[in-house]
Amino acid sequence: MKRARIRWHILVFLTPAVLVYTAVMMFPLFNTLRLALYTRIDQERVFVGLDNFRTLFFDPIWADQFWNALGNNFWFFVIHMLVQNPIGIALAALLSHPRLRFAVLYRSAIFIPTILSFVIVGFAWKLILSPIWGIAPDMLDWIGLKSLYAPWLGKEEYALTTLALVSVWQFVGIPMMLIYAALITIPDEILEAGEVDGITGLSAFWKIKLPLILPSIGIISILTFVGNFNAFDLIYAAQGALAGPDYSTDILGTFMYRTFFGFQLQLGDPHMGSAIASGMFIVILIGVCIYLFGIQTRMRRYQM
């Protein structure tokens, strides 16, 4: 009888990735969770258990900010789900049309904003929408709709939606690319078989293509969810850490940043900041679990 050989190569290939991942992901994550259980009293770090979370959820001053940020985060996500993903799917469907000319050009043009830095996007859109130098008021003026213009980024009721739409503009390329990739893997035979049965045009999309790309849509939804709840950069670049006007664009990321690092006269509090970061982690964890166990397991997959 031959003893099973230890398969060293598995160990050798896995170790570097595990080490790197542990050092840059696992350790900081657990350290943040740990930091949330402490507070600083007179230069000493003191263990306080879940007290920071009690403050965060039940002290009205903190809780108001937290729920405001969480609510804004949900609205940010809803806009992405309602605008970014349908547009992404529609664009992909158009691009995968075999008779469309210059498809490559459109595809690149729509994808380019995705590779731009948040700072550039935030700054460029701030200029475009600026009431003073922006081209938005002028362009509306040309078509006689100047009355529709408002200083959107400065108004409580519009600012968050405006920023969400800017983010949609930036990232619409991602769902487009993923769906496009899924669409072109659908074999022609299936579509032709549908055609024989009289299913063409739009109904071919609804009845054949859409069910086949549903798993990709699921992946895109979860990527959007994680991305949106981790968002910070665009709001920070466009509105600053105080996420004005009057905290109307404050999301968990900016709230965490302000608390952790401090802002202006407000001194940083790494422990409360970590508590907020842990809150973000839990929200994302719950969201991902709902998707994994509630939605993905029920999704039907088709052999193609």
């Binding site: 600026s130 003073i132 130098w133 008021p137 200083p151």
Partner: peptide, 16 residues
Amino acid sequence: LGDGYEAQTYPDSQNI
């Protein structure tokens, strides 16, 4: 404060 001051930034004001 001029039109659209709600969205006017600090550098905007300096420039104006």
